[in-house]
Simulated assay, not measured.
Amino acid sequence: MTKILKTPLPKTSRLWASVAPEDFIDGYAVQTPLSPADAAKIGLSMPRWANALLSLRNTIVKPLGLKTDSADTGDNAIFPTTYEDDNELIIGTDDKHLNFRICLYRENQMVHMATWVHRNNLLGRVYLAVVMPFHILIVRDAMRRIASHAP
């Protein structure tokens, strides 16, 4: 089994241009021959338990006016693509409470996954604190699935 490394996103990623001093950003990496796009298809195809959490999240935040759309592509996608080339895929959205991006970046036979969050207000700070334990579980599970997949 390939080891999941907790490591910063390489500084050559385009995502760093968005990161401000108070922002949250994490980073994980696994060795894999997958492209960022293929890694995203595998890692972001969430298992049932993660989809159940997302559904619960949508039910809870809908009265607060936060985004709950779940289309796979286009303007209504929950994770629309904001940048893509052969070595990097950045997806995410801006909302009232926070702006976030998920970056998959390929460098030296490794695929890195980072999540960046800019909190826009107190709701964004509270939201991030509440979802953080689930975020860690979901990202580590995604990285395990990416690592175990051979093209």
Results as ranks from 00 to 15, higher is better:
Leu66Pro: 01
Ala71Gly: 12
Leu122Val: 09
Tyr127Leu: 15
His112Gln: 03
Arg140Thr: 12
Met132Leu: 13
Leu54Lys: 02
Arg140Gln: 15
Leu54Pro: 02
Val30Thr: 05
Thr59Pro: 04
Asn121Phe: 08
Ala114Ile: 04
Asp141Cys: 12
Met46Val: 01
Met113Asp: 09
Asp72Met: 07
Ile91Met: 15
Ile78Ser: 01
Ile78Val: 02
Leu104Tyr: 14
Met110Ala: 13
Pro21Asp: 11
Ile60Asp: 00
Leu64Asn: 09
Thr68Asp: 15
Val131Glu: 06
Thr59Lys: 14
Ala142Gln: 02
Gly27Lys: 10
Ala142Ser: 07
Ile102Asp: 03
Asp94Arg: 03
Leu64Ala: 06
Met113Pro: 12
Val139Asn: 03
Gln31Arg: 15
Asp26Gln: 12
Leu128Ile: 03
Ala29Asp: 08
Thr32Met: 11
Lys62Pro: 04
Val130Trp: 15
Leu53Asp: 06
Gln109Asp: 01
Val131Trp: 05
Leu53His: 00
Trp116Glu: 10
Ile78Gly: 03
Pro33Gly: 04
Glu88Arg: 01
Cys103Pro: 14
His118Met: 05
Pro36Gln: 11
Arg144Leu: 14
Ala20Gly: 00
Leu123Val: 00
His118Asn: 07
Leu54Met: 15
Trp16Phe: 05
Arg106His: 03
Gly65Trp: 10
Val130Gly: 08
Ile42Pro: 00
Met46Asn: 04
Thr115Val: 10
Ala29Met: 05
Leu44Phe: 15
Trp116Arg: 12
Leu56Ser: 12
Thr115Ala: 09
Asn87Cys: 06
Cys103Leu: 10
Ser45Ala: 02
Asn58Trp: 10
Leu15Arg: 04
Ala37Gly: 02
Leu53Arg: 05
Ile91Trp: 11
Leu98Asn: 12
Leu53Tyr: 14
Trp116Met: 14
Val117Gly: 12
His118Asp: 05
Asn99Gly: 13
Arg140His: 14
Pro80His: 04
Val30Asn: 02
Lys41Gly: 03
Ile136Asn: 11
Ala50Ser: 11
Asp75Leu: 12
Leu137Ala: 15
Leu64Trp: 13
Pro47Gly: 06
Val111Pro: 01
Ile60Arg: 08
Ala50Gly: 05
Ser45His: 01
Phe134Thr: 02
Ile91Val: 15
Ser45Met: 01
Asp94Lys: 08
Ala50His: 02
Ala50Leu: 08
Asp23Ala: 05
